[in-house]
């Protein structure tokens, strides 16, 4: 197990380094930050001071060396835009995303497993057809469009829910609901597919022949064996969400890491972008590890 974690960590670190090099050098290609941050009529001296202050005068390789050294000392630099440590900015945004992502993933998992299992049990029936069709629509829906339509319907016309921001529990309803739809559609299809396979296996037939009731067959006998592919899919979806649901956070003005990243890219605040990439890469690494552990708990044959 320890060997496995080490191997995983090495692979993740390698991809992270590649990514940081890519972003760092691409970001320096987009132009001089002084032009963006200082007013148009800033004097040459103050421009020079700004460059000196943020180390923009050094050759790019030297800048990169400084950056890597600082990161190794756990100093992620300051956000130019907010004049606060970049890590602090990212972490405060990340906690919002974390709550949003965890709640949504939890709801998706529970709903997809229950509805998907029942659909598989009554495969071909009315319930199955309705569930399959709804899940297909869910998997096909563009989230930005759903979000807009939801705002028009529930905020503008009915006035039930706030349009954006945070504060009360009602502010969470629409972001979670919109974020829920697509993963739910995808996960439901996977649950249904793998449950149909599990339910047609020999041990389920034996259980039925013994006279075991429907609900223990579905949720005890078959589900445990059907869960592996489900966990893979849900893990992928959760990884996507941990990086911030860019679109949903932007539309609902939700102060998560996705919105932070988009804003920082648009404002060329690249220390924040790099810090955000590293924090979410860490989170994704931990989550993938959890998924692998879940595998070996569910299926004792899997050993690392």
């Amino acid at each position: 197990m320890r060997h496995f974690i080490g191997k995983r960590a090495f692979a993740s670190a390698l991809s992270l380094i590649g990514l940081i090099v890519l972003v760092f050098f691409l970001s320096r290609l987009t132009g001089d930050p002084t032009a963006l941050f200082l007013p148009l009529d800033a004097s040459l001296e103050s421009r020079e001071r700004f460059r000196e202050l943020h180390g923009l005068n050094d050759p790019i390789i030297v800048q990169f060396g400084h950056y890597v050294w600082d990161v190794l000392n756990l100093d992620f630099g300051d956000s130019i835009r907010k004049a606060r440590p970049a890590l602090e900015v990212v972490l405060s945004a990340f906690q919002w995303t974390l709550i949003l992502a965890l709640t949504t993933v939890f709801l998706v998992t529970v709903a997809a497993i229950i509805i998907g299992s029942l659909a598989a049990f009554y495969a071909g029936g009315v319930f199955d057809r309705i569930a399959t069709f709804l899940s297909l629509i869910g998997a096909s829906a563009p989230d930005f469009w759903i979000a807009i339509v939801a705002i028009v319907l529930f905020s503008v016309n009915l006035g039930w829910l706030p349009t954006s921001g945070t504060g009360t529990i009602w502010h969470w309803v629409m972001p979670i609901a919109v974020l829920f739809i697509r993963p739910f559609g995808l996960a439901l299809q996977v649950v249904r597919g793998s449950m149909i396979t599990a339910l047609s296996s020999a041990y389920v037939k034996t259980a039925r022949a013994k006279g075991v009731k429907a609900s223990p067959i579905i949720f005890v006998h078959a589900l445990r064996n059907a869960l592996l592919p489900v966990i893979t899919v849900i893990g992928d979806l959760a990884a996507g969400m941990l990086n911030g649901a860019v679109v949903v956070e932007t539309i609902f003005g939700f102060p998560g890491v996705g919105k932070l990243m988009i804003d920082s890219i648009l404002q060329r605040d690249f220390t924040v972008v790099l810090a955000a990439i590293m924090v979410s890469a860490m989170a994704i690494f931990l989550m993938n590890l959890l998924i692998d552990i879940a595998y070996s708990v569910l299926d004792p044959r899997i050993r690392y």
Partner: peptide
Amino acid sequence: VIMSFPSLLLAVIVLY
């Protein structure tokens, strides 16, 4: 390496 980063965000960075 490509899989470990969400496609939408990668696209945003590169396209910007």
